[in-house]
Design a protein around this nucleic acid. Structure first.
Lengths: 391, 391
DNA sequence: TTGAAAGCGATACCAC
DNA sequence: GTGGTATCGCTTTCAA
């Protein structure tokens, strides 16, 4: 067994650098640099020679050295709505967490917020694009309205990653979202199992013109149609993410449809729906499955009034989005254009695992602890980077 | 609105470095370095002065510079069993993925494997400790047998992170695992809902002396006891992760217990159990919930014979484990001692999202693509780092 | 016990 | 077009 000797063994045999390339080619490192970076003022022929040699020796730039020498910083814009905070605050935290772990590569996050999804997002995007930024993470509320600005970003060479939507039809580097169709059919399957295969279900959504909402309904309907002949949709309620509207419409529907066995709320707007159920004294008898997770929902899950909720993993969405931008900017790796996460099923028995991650103090950023003598290890109060991803 | 000017704005105002500290204190950077790193040969008084100033100015080392100048490399040992491959291969991939993304900080993975959980792990651990390694990730099969070696690791100053167990009672830096108790009660809750609150369930486990297995059973039993009065445990079968044993014992139990409504297999040993059910012509009528996910299980989920399986997220476990070691070694951040992941529920409707991640070609390591001219962006065939975490 | 200086591997200039 | 060289912030070594 090859037991390495203590001292010298841990020096690394250094990989080929630009200096080696320069030497073997008998040119200067400046020229190599020019070739590698497509910089102007270099002979086509030498450029090719350099590129080829780089290829064969397997040259890979030393990112530490690059960051150290180039004094410019990478600035990544993050535009998110303030509402719904329980979701987007976690997206932001996920982003900050990853950003943090790459701080030594000189990335900085420039954060902008606006009132709500689709409200002020155009202005914020415009502002960000004016702000000489290298990359951008956004949560498009109304993708179609953003299209022109997205084209502008493209022209400016600013890569944009969209979270919480697959934003088809607008230009972007990548999207990150929960698989909406899978989300819908997952609820269909849970509903089928929970109801023993029989019953009629009311679906409460936002508005069906939103791709995401449409896909969830379609997924749900497909699952029911293909696998659960005894299950049907009693009604589809569009509540437009409005509390009052959700409450009123649900009351009406429930009153006029007595034999409802289940309710599926496919947006975060579940509280008023549950209130309507309560008012009809139905919340115990009905099987309710909701979407997202926030403090007000916890007691409803605890009590069993909500059988399950579909968690859309905002923290992880943020992580992935930032990761994509970072790798693209720093390492020139183009991410997959569409990143679909698997939704999580949260029920009473695993609820606490998720709530723990939602405490405001659990932002999981030991590195932010600030100045400390390096020799003293700091035990961080919460979970490090990836660990938080469960939230 | 503060629109920054184009060119100069993106230079960063540099944070305080050891040079600044040296200057304001009127000493040399060498001395500052000695103070910051507790190196021998420095006056106690100056040391304190440096440390204090560092504290007040908020000194944070530039990791890029550190890595660049220190020519030593960090070597992290990874010891994993070859069986069960569907699980541990993914743990390894998760580790490699993170390692990859930190390659520019000079971490290297030294991989060792041995036949199966608990078989050869002592030798492998010994070998790793002999191999002058800086940190270690292991998957302890029999923690109690490893105790002396773990103590040795501790003495040698080698931090160890354990995956797939919370390995109580042995020394380690941290553990990463699915929350076994939550896993058990989650199955209890699913069972309760699926069976409509009535029926008797057979539990198939490995061996109850294994903490992890015990906790799952306890979680399951607790959930049933507290919330599902109509549900009971018909029998608990210890199959010791042996296929034949599982099959035989299950056959017997099922034959002698006619009124079984559900089966819970709390280890990956579910195939023989399902075969036993099939042989008794019960697989359709029973509600089966299993653990882990591997190719052979997919058709059983597809067909509905397995209602759900609890996915233990090997990929993420690997990521978190390596991340913990890395942060500890490089950034001196001590991770939380226990990292409990929330288990995922996989059913027919979201199965494909998980299977996609299990294809052997989907290792998600664009950076490994090898030498390429940097100016040419590479579109990676699969998902970048964090994205794969859903698998 | 301390100071001074030589790298690490890239970028960004200058001069030719 | 190309070569040379200062520079980034730190570690390391040698000299005082």
């Amino acid at each position: 067994m090859p037991r390495r000797r203590k001292a010298e063994a841990r020096k690394r045999t250094k990989p080929p650098g630009i200096r080696e390339i320069a030497e073997t080619l008998g040119i200067s490192i400046g020229t190599v640099d020019r070739a590698l970076h497509d910089r102007p003022g270099i002979n086509k022929a030498t450029r090719t020679r350099v590129l080829e040699l780089a290829q064969t020796v397997g040259y890979r730039p030393n990112l530490a050295a690059r960051f150290l020498s180039s004094r410019k910083q990478c600035r990544v814009g993050v535009n998110l709505p303030r509402e719904i905070a329980s979701f987007f605050d976690l997206v932001r935290d996920g982003i900050l967490d990853v950003a943090q772990s790459f701080e030594s590569s000189g990335v900085r996050v420039v954060y902008r917020s606006y009132p709500r999804l689709g409200q002020g997002e155009i202005e914020a995007l415009e502002e960000a694009l004016d702000d000489d930024i290298d990359g951008l993470v956004i949560a498009p509320g109304r993708p179609e309205h953003l299209a022109p600005l997205m084209r502008r970003a493209m022209r400016q060479g600013v890569p944009v990653v969209c979270v919480n939507t697959d934003a088809p039809g607008i230009e972007h580097l990548a999207t990150v979202s929960v698989d909406a169709a899978a989300s819908g059919s997952l609820v269909g399957e849970l509903m089928g199992r929970f109801l023993g295969g029989n019953g009629r279900v009311v679906v409460v959504t936002g508005q069906l013109s939103t791709v995401d909402h449409r896909q969830k309904l379609d997924g749900f309907r497909k699952e029911l149609g293909e696998r659960w002949p005894g299950l049907g949709i009693a009604a589809v309620v569009e509540a437009h993410d409005d509390e009052r509207e959700a409450y009123e419409k649900c009351r009406q529907v429930l009153a006029s449809t007595p034999d409802v066995a289940g309710v599926y709320v496919s947006t975060a707007n579940s509280i008023p729906v549950m209130r309507a159920l309560d008012d009809q004294r139905m919340s115990g008898r009905l099987t309710a499955i909701t979407t997202d997770l926030f403090p007000a929902l916890a007691p409803l899950i605890e009590s069993g009034k909500v059988a399950a909720t579909i968690y859309q993993r905002p923290w992880v969405q943020g992580q992935i989005a930032f990761q994509a931008i970072y790798k693209f900017l720093v390492q020139r790796v183009t991410p997959p254009p569409v990143n679909k996460l698997s939704p999580h099923v949260v029920m009473r028995s695993n609820l606490k695992l998720f709530l723990e991650r939602m405490r405001p103090d659990a932002t999981g950023s030991p590195g932010r602890a600030g100045p400390r003598p390096e020799t003293r290890a700091a035990r961080s109060g919460s979970v490090a980077t990836f660990a938080d991803e469960i939230g």
